[in-house]
Design a protein around this nucleic acid. Structure first.
Lengths: 227, 227, 227, 227
DNA sequence: AATGAATGAGCATTCATTCAT
DNA sequence: AATGAATGAATGCTCATTCAT
């Protein structure tokens, strides 16, 4: 792998594990087995590294979150959305954990982040509107965007919340599926009677997945990479 | 006021405004009009100050969140809960914004925080169970705790979420009421048909309050202190 | 002596000896026997130290260069001016050696330096005009300021020039008196016939002083402090 | 042009514009459109580049400053000398601006510089002696070398002095002619009555040139290249 | 000749903490 | 209780120089 990419992906991993603040550029270089100078040969400064990671984040978000068109409206469709949602949050979880710090320190990222999030929210709202039109959701029109926003918030802060509110530090798939079930619960609470069963089935699907991964402390490090 | 308390309350205010990381102990002392030495006369270190703030947080949480007993089950009861909920989050908002940092740096606070949160969750669950028994909520028993947990999460991260996802940095009451409405939306989605009207009324109540405070950029600093 | 003053005077000495660029803040602290932190406790940054040295420079310049009033126009008067001129340049010689660097790096000092120099030039011109009126100098009015300016330039860059153009690095009094004689030569070349003898006498005075100090390489370090 | 020469001439231009300290070897390479490695293929280190520039400087100095022989002793002769003098200083102005730094960092250049300067001073003195013999200058024999030395100093530090003592940073021809006029003033002050008129005429010549270029802030970049 | 990735010692500066008074 | 000078390890970053290709 190119050094540039090694730095981007390595920093992403280290930021995820230790947080942006605790991961100094010298530590970063040491962990990557390179000199501090090389880091600054490829990137102007620490923020510049984060900006490159943010590029990946944007790609992920834009790629995985498009309104459905001709796809059949079934369990698989939802599974696709949910998996994408939590996978993205997981892969870039340092961003959510250190959001305030990151956005305060870099005006450019701040702008891009807000734009990206607005677009993601717009697309999510579209999807929910379509689900309402397709008879899946029973919900007032003016509640669609707030609902999408709440779901986004739950997905975004779930890892952070869970890590700070549970005894185990390690994040497992079981961990993530629990968050997913919360979003699902929101869906179910707003679903039409006809589709309630589908959401129940989805819940069972993820409940089973969650249980199958629920081997709390014996999880190896590699097992943490989810989905 | 005793110097000890001046430090505790002053630090709380300064942490809320500037964040734990940006507020150095020297700045803290300077803002409080005392010497750095005096800070360390009263507290062993920075974490020790946070621990004292945490004592206040615990009191607040325990005082304001008791299951209702003989009170009439009406709008006022809910308003009481909701106001307490968001007031607590507001008063100690630095804790939520810097939760990961704080808990990672201090094992003792980490343990106490988790215990406190567990107790708060237990009491919240009790309240929801009672609401179910009293015919307010239509919800499976095993969904009560997850619902309470989701509500807690929304309340806890709302300020953080809103500050990072909206263009205005200032936190206003309107700001907080919007979060409250989201929790209310969750209640409403799980309410029995009989009580749906009550939640709609509650929504109208907070919607009005929110609108009355919605004077975006003309808010003076003092107006920001909510509830 | 107060730490603040120790830093100011110590830095002045070290800047004079090693130059501003080669004298890092860490070296500065080490040479002064203090920690880097203490340096930054008393001064915001390196420029701030230079600014404090500049205060001394301004005092020196303003104190020693006032137009004469009731004083007798004799050899002693000139000796007073000349000694002040070269003493100032000697004491703050790092400023002249690193002038471009210093002024480029600090807008504030740049402004103050130019103002100070303009004032010094104005006062010098006044003195020369008075000397012309008193029958000492035979010179067109419009050449007075250029002459004063040339003298200033010679005095200002003499040490720098001499250090870079002679084999011995050490600056001795003999060294400085040679520069003084150059300024004197300028005076003499523009003097009236009546006063030519006085300038010759002044030259002899400084020539003798110069010779008495002319023991090139045996000068001890302390002997370098001139005038 | 050979890469070697491109580096030499390019570095000269960049050092003149930005100073030796601010022009890093990496910037140098970037500006020249070559790799840092190539720089170090042709030169051992930064000092080595300066040494090669110094070769050009020596050639310039030696070529342009030979005592006159059969030439007619007129205005044109002086114009030739003066123009050469200031042209050389201009073309290698970075050397004067950073003289202390350069000489301190490289013993070899230091020795060569001093030798070169001594030779130039000797030749200048010869010229002045000849001018005295030809009845142009009225000056004691033992003042000839000091006078030549003072002139050299004024020429050498003029740009530096002017840049640090005037508000405009840009160096224009008008700028340089002012310095030339100062040297001329020295000549005139030591001239015989017969030749005084000639120096006055020379002053008028340069005064006119200076005025013709005196368009302070509208000078385009290219107009800055003088003489 | 030429590239450009890589090095590592060094720089200005910060900040939680200590301690003599 | 209180001061405030003092510490020193650490931080983000720079730059002359090297070296495999």
């Amino acid at each position: 792998m190119k050094t540039f990419d090694r730095i981007v992906y390595g920093s992403l991993a280290l930021f995820n594990e230790h947080g942006v603040n605790d991961m100094t550029t010298n530590h970063l270089a040491a962990h990557l087995g390179i000199s501090p100078g090389l880091l600054y040969y490829h990137f102007r400064n620490k923020e510049d590294i984060i900006r490159s990671i943010f590029n990946l984040y944007e790609e992920h978000l834009n790629a995985g979150f498009q309104p459905y068109q001709d796809e059949k409206l079934d369990v698989a469709l939802f599974i696709g959305y949910f998996d994408t949602m939590f996978e993205t949050v997981w892969k870039f979880r340092f961003m959510y954990s250190n959001l305030t710090t990151i956005l305060n320190r870099d005006q450019e990222i701040s702008k891009r982040y807000k734009l990206t999030q607005q677009q993601a929210l717009d697309r999510s709202s579209q999807i929910l509107h379509k689900l309402k039109a397709d008879g899946v959701l029973a919900i007032d029109s003016d509640r669609v965007t707030p609902l999408a926003d709440t779901m986004r918030m739950i997905a975004g802060f779930w890892i952070d919340y869970k890590q700070t509110h549970s005894s185990s530090k390690h994040v497992t798939k079981a961990f993530l599926y629990e968050g997913l079930l919360r979003v699902l619960m929101l869906f179910r609470a707003h679903s039409t009677p006809e589709y309630c069963a589908m959401f129940t089935r989805l819940e069972q699907h993820y409940q089973q997945l969650m249980n199958s991964y629920a081997t709390p402390d014996t999880d190896s490090e590699s097992a943490l990479m989810p989905i």
